[in-house]
């Protein structure tokens, strides 16, 4: 059984500071709503608007569709890894700063990887992966 430990306030109770908010919590909601828009666009462009593969590939060399996919990529990576962070933070003691660094690096690598895949539709081969 989990026995509640005596809890001390983590934050200073000095009058000057504004009460804390969790930006991770707020941004998770906003990115979730944004994802809904991007995902609907992604599914529409890639699966419903003329779903022939060569048409999709040529369409992906147009800025507007690329913007849609890069936007989706950035937001989905943020939302997914932020959710994972929330799960891991629950079990980790303290602030676990290393976790934030690790997940940030993973996020940046994933976005670069995804952009590289989109790049391949312009130049017919990825820039980074040889």
């Amino acid at each position: 059984m989990a026995t509640p430990s005596p809890v001390k306030p983590e934050v200073s109770t000095a009058r000057s500071s504004t009460p804390p908010v969790s930006w991770a919590w707020i941004l998770q909601r906003f990115s979730g709503l944004l994802l809904l828009v991007f995902l609907a666009g992604h599914l529409w462009v890639e699966h419903f608007m003329n779903a022939r593969v060569d048409v999709i590939a040529s369409r992906l060399t147009h800025g507007i569709y690329d913007t849609l996919d890069i936007g989706l990529l950035i937001v989905v990576v943020y939302h997914g890894l932020n959710g994972l962070r929330g799960i891991l933070k629950e079990t980790l003691e303290g602030r676990a700063v290393w976790l934030d660094y690790t997940l940030s690096c993973l996020g940046i690598v994933t976005v670069v990887w995804g952009v590289d895949i989109l790049w391949a539709f312009w130049y017919h081969r990825p820039f980074l992966i040889f």
């Binding site: 983590e10 500071s17 009460p19 908010v21 969790s22």
Partner: peptide, 13 residues
């Protein structure tokens, strides 16, 4: 303000 500072804590709040 004081109460909000307590309920806004990251793990306990």
């Amino acid at each position: 303000e004081e109460r909000l500072r307590v309920v806004g804590q990251s793990r306990a709040g």
